[in-house]
Simulated assay, not measured.
Amino acid sequence: MPEDSNRDAYNIPPTRTPVPDPAEFFKTVCSYIIDAPVTFVREWIERQQAKNKHYYYHQKFRRVPDLSECLEGDYLCYYEAEAQWRRDRMVDKEIVEIVRERLGACKQREGPNQFQNCAKEAELLVQVTKAYQDRYGDLGVHGNSRTCLMKQKHRMMEERK
């Protein structure tokens, strides 16, 4: 009895067992059964990957001598210069494509105002395309570093005249 009198004196409500909320119970069970193991495995995988972190960047090739710098009969130098020329051609082709895509995106974005707002991109495309055409134009599908070098030599001779 003295307990009840103390409760009344301090206005403490009587103790009751709380009714469990089914949604809260389901959430807690799912947290322990599904979320905890998945989180543990993911964090473990991330720790393992952090230990063995590899950076994947573009492959960097060393610059080799140009075909004009190769000694006569040095076939390995010829091959390396040809491979270097092919990589340079692919890079230049991708540059032209990227600039072309930027111009297309600008035209799409600007709509009717494309002629005044995309003039910078259009001028850049003209310059890049002209540079690509000057270097690789008229070589055909089977063009190689030797024919490109000869084309460059002939162009330089014409400019001197």
Rank of each mutant, 00 (worst) to 15 (best):
L103W: 06
D4V: 12
G111D: 11
Y10W: 14
N117S: 11
R86Q: 13
E80V: 08
R62E: 12
F115I: 14
K53P: 01
R47Y: 05
P22F: 01
C106M: 09
G111W: 08
R155Q: 15
M90S: 12
H54G: 03
F26I: 10
K151H: 09
A119W: 02
R146I: 15
C30D: 01
R146Q: 11
P13N: 11
Q49C: 06
E3P: 04
K161V: 13
K60Q: 13
D8L: 15
N117I: 01
F25Y: 00
E43D: 04
E94D: 09
K107W: 10
V128Y: 04
R109N: 11
Y132R: 04
K151W: 07
L71D: 09
F61Y: 15
D134V: 11
S31F: 07
K120G: 03
R155G: 04
G140M: 02
C70H: 02
L149Q: 12
A36Y: 02
Q49P: 00
H58L: 12
P37K: 00
D88S: 12
T39Q: 03
R100G: 09
K153E: 08
S5M: 10
S5Y: 05
Y55V: 15
Y136A: 00
Q48F: 05
C70I: 05
T28K: 03
P20R: 04
V141D: 13
G73R: 02
I95E: 14
P13S: 14
Y132I: 10
D74H: 03
V38N: 02
K130S: 12
H142E: 14
R87G: 03
I33W: 01
R109L: 13
P18K: 06
E80F: 13
Q108L: 15
Q152Y: 03
R146H: 11
L125K: 07
E123H: 09
H142M: 12
E158N: 15
N6H: 10
L103N: 05
Y75L: 15
V38D: 01
Y55T: 13
L139G: 03
M150C: 15
F115R: 11
K151S: 14
M157Y: 07
A81F: 00
R102T: 02
D66E: 14
R63F: 06
L125C: 04
C118Q: 07
L67E: 00
Q127C: 05
K151Q: 15
A50V: 00
Y55H: 10
K151P: 08
P20Q: 03
N117Y: 08
V99D: 11
Y78F: 09
M1G: 08
Q59G: 07
R63Q: 12
K120C: 01
T39S: 06
Q152F: 02
Q108E: 11
P112R: 07
F40W: 05
V29L: 08
D74Q: 07
K161W: 09
K51E: 07
T17D: 06
K53W: 07
R86H: 08
M157W: 09
Q48V: 05
T28G: 02
R109K: 14
I12M: 11
P2D: 11
Y79V: 03
V91R: 14
